[in-house]
Design a protein around this nucleic acid. Structure first.
Length: 477
RNA sequence: GCGGCUAUAGUUCAAUGGUAGAACACUGGUUUGUGGUACCAGUCACCUGGGUUCAAUUCCCAGUAGCCGCCCCA
């Protein structure tokens, strides 16, 4: 009501112009003063398409990393971290010159000293390089490696599409066996199953380069005959990259696409039976998959099995979901290591996008917040007064060895505030020490649930608290 | 890289051609040595530049950023 009144008053003003003090124009150098910072100093913004991962996000990122590491342990992958910068040529040769990633999405730097380098757009090429440089063909074969780190692509940003994003990846080099392919699909599947949300696996085989070339020619032939019926984009694709014709979503192209020749029919018997074997293993594993004859991945190094992982669309509301982008993808790359100058080494791998996975996890966590890890504290340590503060810090540090997780905030001087924090942390007990206790060599143990307090000797406090916290019982005996 | 939509507090959202409110969050108090509930108070915002106007956060244009669709992919 008061607001409305005010507004009415304002409306009456027009005739008599309210005095208008022209705003003191902001000094030119002055940017937005966002919260912190001195006046007159420009605040910097995060670069376009990049984002900070703040502590509040940790509850989503932590399970990602723990999960990734656990899977690596169970399936015996050794960790590898390769540099973020590589020679440009590494990616041009491995991913393919004509691919979007290489053609327009790489961050390239150049000068006399460093030559032409770039931020890595993906890691498989680096892993293959490291396999060669590190002489890993002398390791017991196959060599199983996993990595976790940021990748860079200068694409136009969108939700879930960043210029710096994290990937976790698993690679198996030195084995040509359908069980390898199946294991990698299994890992991707498990990764999301363990996080608690369903995914859809789409899989296909694109055979060997010769087989693919023959198929490409056939596909182009087929489309050329129908050139006048297809969309504009498809006409471009026909010239530039016929395999991409299979991705077209335009309605007018669908009937043509449905009738188009399928790559499976152009594979050799050996390629076909290899792929069948992969599928058999997946059936045996109970990993659900969708055979997708139109799936051809965008990087040149793939051979035979290729697959992608998508968030599963709940069948109740298929219309609600927006266009899906892949959470991850992978496949076999039998020719890559040799192509890069190493010995002929069959290999396969999978990479999962963490930022996108976090987004999906958040989406599910909104409905079901239960399964996210929370930091668990056993006790809270509260303090009153300077001398107590010093003693508290000392005791907290000593208690660290006990294995107890201790919450504290020595920088707040009000006991009320400290107990509030104890409450937020949901600790069962709080230890309180003040001036009096310091003098007497005692400390208060407060049961946070009942509010009952007892005063005990400081030296005995550790054992008493441990006894109360049942989980430390064993250590006492 | 192409097309469209949007831009107000830390967050989610209001209102408005006469410089702005809520909720949550944050800080403090009611209780100067005691949390969970409640009440009170306080801090914090109109993306940048130009134009129209007596007056622009509001209307127009451009830039920037975010989002959506394409392209592509993680």
């Amino acid at each position: 009501m008061p607001i409305k009144k005010l507004r009415d008053k304002k409306k009456q003003i027009p005739k008599k112009y309210k005095e208008h003090k022209p705003k003191a124009k902001k000094k030119e150098a002055e940017g937005k003063d966002h919260g912190q910072g001195e006046k007159g100093k420009r605040a910097y913004n995060v670069l376009r398409g990049m984002h900070d991962i703040l502590p509040r996000e940790e509850k989503y990122w932590k399970p990602m990393f723990n999960n990734a590491m656990n899977l690596a342990d169970h399936f015996q992958y050794g960790r590898i971290e390769t540099p973020i910068m590589e020679e440009v040529g590494l990616f041009v040769r491995s991913l393919g010159k004509g691919t979007d990633v290489v053609e327009k999405e790489m961050y390239v730097f150049e000068n006399d000293e460093i030559g032409r380098v770039c931020l890595r757009p993906e890691a498989t090429a680096s892993v293959a390089r490291a396999f060669i440089n590190g002489g890993m063909w002398n390791y017991p074969q196959p060599v199983k490696l996993w990595y976790w780190g940021p990748m860079f692509r200068h694409d136009r940003p969108q939700a879930g599409r960043y210029r710096q994003f994290f990937q976790v990846g698993y690679e198996i080099l030195g084995a040509e066996d359908p069980a390898v392919d199946a294991e990698l699909v299994l890992i991707a599947y498990n990764f999301y199953k363990d996080l608690g949300f369903p995914v859809e696996i789409r899989i296909n085989s694109i055979g060997l380069p010769e087989e693919r070339e023959r198929y490409k020619a056939e596909l182009a032939n087929y489309y050329r005959a129908k050139k006048s019926y297809i969309c504009e984009d498809c006409r471009k694709r026909l010239l530039k990259n016929p395999l991409r014709l299979l991705d077209c979503k335009a309605d007018q192209c669908q009937p043509i696409k449905d009738e188009a020749p399928q790559i499976v029919d152009w594979l050799s018997d050996a390629s076909k039976s290899y792929f069948m074997k992969v599928l058999e293993y997946l059936d045996e594993l109970g990993v659900p998959y969708n055979l997708q004859p139109t799936l051809v991945r965008g990087l040149d190094y793939y051979t035979h099995t290729v697959f992608e992982v998508y968030p599963a669309v709940p069948s109740e509301n298929p219309g609600e979901e927006k266009a899906q982008s892949a959470l991850g993808g992978g496949g076999r790359y039998d020719l890559l290591v040799e192509e890069m100058g190493g010995r002929s080494t069959p290999a396969a791998g999978v990479a999962l996008g963490i930022d996108r996975s976090v987004a999906v996890l958040k989406h599910y966590a909104e409905k079901n917040p239960l399964n996210l890890p929370k930091p668990v504290y056993d006790i809270f340590f509260a303090q009153l007064g300077d001398r107590a503060k010093g003693r508290a810090l000392k005791m907290i540090n000593d208690l660290r060895k006990s294995g107890m997780k201790i919450g504290f905030n020595l920088y707040k001087n009000s006991l009320k505030t400290q107990l509030e924090l104890a409450n937020d942390l949901k600790v069962p007990y709080a230890l309180i020490i003040g001036q009096k206790e310091v003098q007497e060599g005692t400390i208060i143990i407060r049961d946070m649930e009942s509010g009952i307090q007892e005063i005990v000797d400081q030296k005995k406090a550790e054992n008493i608290v441990k006894k109360k916290l049942k989980k430390f019982d064993d250590g006492d005996k």
